[in-house]
Design a protein around this nucleic acid. Structure first.
Length: 892
RNA sequence: GCGCGCUUAGCUCAGUGGUAGAGCAUUACCUUCACACGGUAGGGGUCGCAGGUUCGAAACCUGCAGCGCGCACCA
């Protein structure tokens, strides 16, 4: 048996075991295994990303599920991989090259050479996050690791595109899209986040041409788009303006254009809300989605006055050309003032769409893009609605349903280079379109579409494209649909919903049976973790400092189902302390020596043994139920409570009475109980704390004599603890009364310890207690009492007549005195007992009130009534004891 | 505007009808031979507010308030 160090040192233990797990192939899933299948696909992190606390939470949960499933005897596939993350990766590489002074723009390199650089970058940084997941202990099947740009995967993406194109669900069209002026690409609606901005609402007036002297006042937040206005709209039901429909106004800009070329019509459109502003709307079809719709209805000209980067173009007039839109806005307002057309400016709060990635306002922009009408919508909706596909927590199903009910076509083309290129070619002369897996035979006559696909257009195929689709592979047959998906609610639309639709469309089945949504990790103040705030600790630093197990435990313990997690490093510290406790409790076992996992003899079991076995039983039940219900934080709390507050605080202390005694038979039996408990505890802990449990499982030799696939090779393969069945309970004579008895004794001991404090006796000093039992007491029990009370001795004196005023603790077990040899603090003791009496009588009052109510007696269930009556009896007895003690103080 | 969530000890949060809990922080004592990454004992809560249901509500219902999030083309 190797020695166990005094404090747990995780780093060497963790790297040792991870290497060994990999070597023994314990993570790899066998498609031909006879065991029932369990599978998860990892939400693929950005290939050039680094591990965040969000990843820690997410992947720890997946690892818990995977490890638990293995212990349940399942064949487990946890399929890992990474995502190419189009915009993010391309931006990072381009920025780096610029910083190094190698390019000023990616055009300097050209598409092919730039892509070479991105691949170089990927080779260099792409493995980092995978290595970090390994440090965390993730039991992924690394032999099946996938990347969304792998050739086979890319083929799947193209195949799906071609198929959806053939089905007519993918189409190309000139439409208003969300345009990111920094990334210079179209975005999907999901990549736009609305932010409230405080801006100004500008009111300017224009004269109605046909009615000189009549002015219309228009309210706008974006006067810089005036050069793009091609109409002014009013509501046809608005009495104020209806008569003006058909007349014209002259828009103020661009001033270098003659007035007759700035003449625009006044139109009537129901979209205009006459409650808002002045009820007059300027219509800019090229720069506003709603205006574009109005333009379609009225066949208005579309005048694009901006460049792709958000600066104004020549059509905005020579005065503004090249200026950024924000500068132009100021200029426009000033100029309107000069012209005498600006009536007023009002502070105004409005919602502006921001590019999620670049964090700049998006520009609605008319451009030619590829769109997808989602497939398999109905099946996907009803799968969740009916509960066939379950969300945890359930409330996300409603959000999903709402989104599914309002599906907008998905803009899937991106003006980027890094990604899956659209498999479409245009004929150089005829403009004929070819969509296929291969380029047309006479490739020279064709030009491929320059755009790539939205990253999510590859990610939505993840559950089956990683398993060998479109071939019907063994892996696919065995592990699809997957069992659980663990992800954040922030990608419910981006990824989860789309995967469901792709799953139905291409596999005819949902891609997973359950989706667990984690919370979002925030800092102590509730702010999201972000690089710019610098409030995001590096998980690897935390692992180096506290250990991976500690980090896992700390994070999971603080992460309730469906709630955001306020992260605090103290939680990790708690995890470390807990591991250390586990370590030392095992060390205590090891220091006792003796045979490993001896037989437990029922006739030698003490009440403490029975008590801890029953507590273990409860922990097994609660732990199993917590994991069933995805309540991982509850599981951590169950383990914490059982192991620390029950096993260590009470049971281990009580066993010292045995180990310090001379009864070798009983010592051996106690060791057998300890081994039984610990071997169960380690298995219960293993999904949360994989490393330390493996280390202890081996050093305590619980792996001995077990078949390799049932814990012999590794605790990973050990069986999940089963609750102690009736047979077990009967054989060992376990009974609820044992549990209650020891529970009662714990309270009694606490009360006894409390006496020392009130007598101002240092807690380290050994003292003499006198115990006046109310019934029989065994020598073993009095030994345990002595030990738990840290007493020099406990005199058991059934007929003890205490000197007046001796501090006493009362219990149904009897009375415990702390004789003080004349040093009695009458005043202090009176105060203590009076306070206790007060508490007792307050409790009695509460119970009495209930019992005094006739309707209570009539309506309450018998068991509850019985329990209340018993409670009253107990309190009354205690009241008697305390009253007597007080009496003795007052009348010595 | 619609929808969802939250409000319990100083802090972070458990607790879905029957004696208010945990961790951290705090107070006092203890370097007792598993563990100071520890031990022992304690202090601290009218469970956001107002009604209602019930023998009984932190929990169930209604309303209100505050905070947070999602969805929504109001310029």
């Amino acid at each position: 048996m190797p020695d166990i160090t005094k404090a747990y040192e995780p780093s060497t233990v963790e790297s040792k075991w991870y290497a060994q797990w990999l070597e023994s192939g314990l993570f790899s899933a066998k498609a031909d295994s006879p065991k029932p299948a369990y599978s998860i696909v990892i939400p693929p992190p950005n290939v050039t990303g680094v591990l965040t606390l969000g990843h820690v939470l997410n992947n720890t949960i997946q690892d818990i599920l995977a490890r638990k499933a293995r212990m349940d005897g399942k064949e487990v596939l946890w399929l890992p991989g990474t995502d190419h993350a189009g915009i993010a990766t391309q931006t990072v590489v381009e920025k780096t090259l610029k910083k190094q002074g190698l390019i000023r723009h990616r055009n300097d390199l050209g598409r092919d050479r730039f892509l070479e650089k991105v691949w170089e970058w990927k080779e260099k940084h792409g493995g980092i996050i995978i290595q970090q997941l390994k440090k965390l202990g993730c039991s992924c099947d690394w032999s099946r690791e996938r990347f969304t740009m792998d050739p086979a995967y890319a083929r799947c993406v193209q195949r799906v595109f071609v198929d959806l194109h053939q089905k007519g669900l993918i189409y190309r069209g000139k439409r208003m899209v969300n345009w990111c002026p920094v990334s210079l690409t179209a975005l999907s609606d999901e990549e736009v986040v609305m932010k409230q901005q405080s801006g100004l609402l500008y009111y300017f007036k224009v004269e109605v041409e046909e009615r000189p002297g009549t002015f219309l006042t228009i309210a706008t937040t974006r006067p810089e788009t005036i050069p793009g206005d091609t109409a002014v709209a009013v509501n046809p039901n608005d009495e104020r303006y209806a008569s003006l429909i058909g007349s014209h106004v002259i828009r103020p800009f661009p001033e270098d254009l003659p007035a007759e070329r700035r003449r625009i019509p006044i139109i009537g459109d129901g979209h205009v809300d006459f409650q808002f502003g002045t009820g007059v709307l300027k219509v800019t079809p090229a720069h506003d989605k709603a205006d574009f719709e109005i333009g379609l209805r009225h066949k208005l000209e579309v005048l694009d006055v901006m460049n792709p980067d958000g600066s104004m173009n020549a059509l905005a007039g020579s005065a503004w050309e090249g200026l950024d839109r924000v500068k132009a806005r100021k200029l426009a307002a000033e100029r309107l003032k000069d012209l005498g057309q600006l009536e007023k400016e009002e502070p105004y709060q409005n919602n502006v769409g921001f590019s999620e990635r670049a964090d700049v306002p998006v520009e609605p922009r008319l451009s030619e893009q590829w769109f997808l009408r989602y497939p398999s919508q109905d099946k996907s909706r009803s799968a969740v609605e009916s509960g066939a596909l379950k969300f945890h927590p359930e409330r996300w199903a409603k959000v999903y349903g709402h989104w599914m009910g309002n599906l907008q076509d998905w803009c899937i083309s991106r003006q980027l280079w890094w990604g899956h290129r659209i498999p479409v070619w245009y004929h150089n002369q005829t403009r004929e379109v070819h969509c296929g897996l291969e380029a047309p035979a006479d490739a020279a006559c064709w030009t491929q579409d320059p755009d790539v696909l939205d990253t999510w257009f590859s990610a939505w195929l993840w559950p089956f494209a990683t398993m060998g689709w479109p071939d019907n592979t063994d892996t696919l047959k065995r592990f699809y649909p997957t069992t659980d998906l663990v992800t954040g609610p922030d990608i419910l639309f981006f990824w989860v919903a789309r995967m469901i639709m792709a799953g139905f469309e291409y596999m005819g089945e949902m891609p997973f049976l359950n989706v667990y949504f984690t919370g979002i990790i925030r800092d102590k103040q509730g702010r999201k973790m972000s690089k710019s705030l610098g409030n995001s600790p590096d998980p690897l630093d935390l692992i180096a400092l506290y250990g991976a197990d500690a980090l896992r435990f700390g994070v999971i313990r603080a992460a309730p189902l469906g709630q955001d997690v306020l992260f605090d490093e103290q939680q990790v510290e708690l995890g470390r302390n807990f591991c250390n406790k586990l370590w030392n409790a095992s060390r205590f076992r090891q220091l006792q020596g003796g045979q490993t996992e001896g037989e437990i003899a029922p006739e030698l079991l003490t009440p403490d043994d029975k008590w801890i076995l029953l507590k273990l039983d409860r922990a097994i039940v609660e732990m199993s139920e917590a994991l069933e219900g995805y309540r991982f934080n509850e599981g951590a709390q169950v383990l914490y409570r059982f192991f620390w507050s029950e096993y260590c605080d009470w049971y281990v202390e009580a066993t010292k009475a045995v180990f310090q005694g001379a009864d070798d038979q009983r010592k051996a039996n106690t060791l057998a109980v300890i081994d039984f408990i610990l071997s169960n505890v380690l298995r219960l802990f293993h999904p949360y704390l994989p490393f330390i449990t493996e280390e202890l499982w081996n050093s305590l030799e619980y792996n001995q004599e077990l078949p390799a696939d049932q814990g012999g090779a590794s605790i990973m393969t050990a069986r999940w603890p089963k609750r102690l069945g009736t047979e077990f309970r009967e054989f060992y004579g376990l009974d609820e009364s044992d549990e209650q008895l020891v529970d009662l004794r714990c309270e009694f001991v606490t009360a006894g310890r409390n006496l020392r404090r009130h007598a101002h006796i240092p807690s380290g000093k050994k003292v003499r207690y006198v115990f006046k039992p109310s019934g029989e007491i065994t020598p073993h029990d009095s030994n345990v009492l002595k030990l738990l009370l840290n007493a020099e001795l406990v005199d058991v004196l059934p007929g003890y007549d205490a000197p007046k005023g001796t501090p006493v603790a009362a219990s149904p077990m009897g009375e415990l005195f702390l004789p003080l040899d004349g040093l009695i603090d009458i005043e202090g003791e009176t105060a203590r007992l009076s306070k206790e009496l007060g508490k007792i009588e307050a409790e009695m009052e509460k119970v009495n009130q209930k019992l005094a109510s006739p309707s209570f007696i009539e309506k309450v269930p018998a068991a509850v009534l019985e329990e209340h009556r018993k409670r009253l009896i107990d309190w009354t007895a205690k009241q008697g004891q305390v009253k007597a003690a007080l009496e003795a103080l007052v009348n010595p």
